[in-house]
């Protein structure tokens, strides 16, 4: 893991965008361009890139959420809405799911898909920046952010914003790519990320650069222990994590005291 990975300080005006340093103010726009480009084929590419395993990672994340009828769940960076659709069933008609994403193109794909599957009655779609969430303090029971935190410019600010909107006892679940625990798996994974993944992006989405950014942003993201520390620093209590698929992905869980 690169030391620059934990770039959440405000001391520098630049931040990482994949392996490139860019102006902090410009990162959100650059990330938006990437997701504008991949939005229409995002789920297909996720299935191809992970061999469908991302559905299993998300399934375990939903189990850890312990969401139940009547609760309010915020699915941040929820993009194409696959988690929101599942939460919609769990919280029932008396509960509420908020599908939020900073990217309008991803939200549009998500909203269309939710309408197509009939999962709409208790779902609100909101375009929102994770760093300054437009919700009341203590109004959410559970927040999930799946494969979204690494694209946020100021992760510490985003985590503090999430803590603010959570109810006491509420929980945050961060599902994100992380650091493989085995050196051999790490090598294989590196080859796959920088050789196979951009080639697949080029073939299927005609966009190798966006998928190269996705691979680079994964490497720049904090590893398991660093993210755990960031969550604790933001004020989350009882923070823990579960490694999945040899640490390629980890799900962190923290509670608002």
């Amino acid at each position: 893991m690169n030391d620059d990975a934990v770039d959440t300080s405000n001391s520098d005006d630049s931040t990482d965008f994949g392996f490139t340093r860019v102006d902090r103010a410009a990162k959100a726009g650059l990330v938006r361009e990437v997701f504008d480009s991949v939005a229409s084929r995002y789920d297909l590419m996720n299935d191809l890139m992970s061999g469908g395993i991302h559905r299993l990672w998300k399934r375990f994340t939903i189990e850890l959420s312990a969401a139940r009828a009547g609760q309010t769940v915020l699915d941040l960076a929820g993009g194409t809405g696959d988690l929101a659709a599942k939460f919609s069933r769990l919280v029932g008609p008396e509960g509420r799911v908020i599908l939020a994403d900073i990217n309008a193109a991803m939200l549009e794909v998500g909203r269309d898909r939710l309408i197509d599957t009939g999962a709409t009655g208790n779902i609100n779609v909101v375009q929102a920046d994770a760093q300054s969430l437009p919700f009341e303090d203590g109004s959410i029971d559970c927040i999930t952010i799946a494969f979204g935190l690494r694209n946020v410019t100021d992760k510490a600010m985003a985590l503090r914003s999430m803590l603010r909107v959570l109810r006491p006892g509420g929980r945050l679940l961060v599902l994100e790519f992380s650091k493989p625990t085995s050196p051999l798996l790490a090598k294989i994974y590196d080859q796959y990320s920088f050789q196979v993944l951009p080639a697949m992006g080029k073939l299927i989405a005609q966009d190798a650069d966006s998928y190269r950014y996705l691979a680079e942003s994964i490497r720049q993201h904090p590893d398991q222990e660093t993210l755990l520390g960031l969550m604790e620093e933001a004020g989350f209590a009882n923070v823990s994590y579960h490694n999945m698929t040899g640490g390629i992905v980890a799900v962190h869980r923290g509670f608002k005291a």
Binding site: I53, R55, L56, W57, R59, F60, H242, N243, M244, T245, G246, V249, V251
Partner: peptide, 12 residues
Amino acid sequence: HDPALLSAALYG
């Protein structure tokens, strides 16, 4: 067990 492996078995 790895949660992803277990999830796969349980999903099936």
